[in-house]
Amino acid sequence: MSSELRDLYQEVVIDHARHPRNFLKLENPTCTAEGFNPLCGDQLTLYVKLAEGVIEDIAFQGDGCAISKASASLMTTELKGKKQEEALALFGRVHALLTEGPKGEENLEGVGKLAALSGIWEFPLRVKCATLAWHTLRNALEGTGARISTELNNHGS
């Protein structure tokens, strides 16, 4: 098996895909949003409980590929207890990691366990699987409540 595949499907990723953390529906969330990736049918609902700008609790439910599930699961474990602005700032760093790779160590700084996603940049078609949870988070926090989609066009036959 190629080393790129091993980097993509790191043990942490497989583990989170198989046993996603915070995989439940929150009672009384302060914000929720739904994310959808029509390319492969990934679908998730994100529940966030905000208290004075801090993410007190966060959880998700849904179905999707290993990358989308692991990314959502890792995201929830990293964000609990973080301030809203910190969460959105982290999205920026994660986005750089997903699209550019580790760039030495530069893009690994401050991403914690999300470093497990560092192999995705070599698979450009899979980046949106990993960003789905984050785009959904932004929608939830910004309170638009709209269902977001990774695709605006259709993918044929």
Partner: peptide
Amino acid sequence: HPHDIGTILDREGVAIRTGHHC
């Protein structure tokens, strides 16, 4: 998930389709 199957097969040179196939 089929999408993961597709990615792994692709690296072996095997091109298949995954998804809902319209």
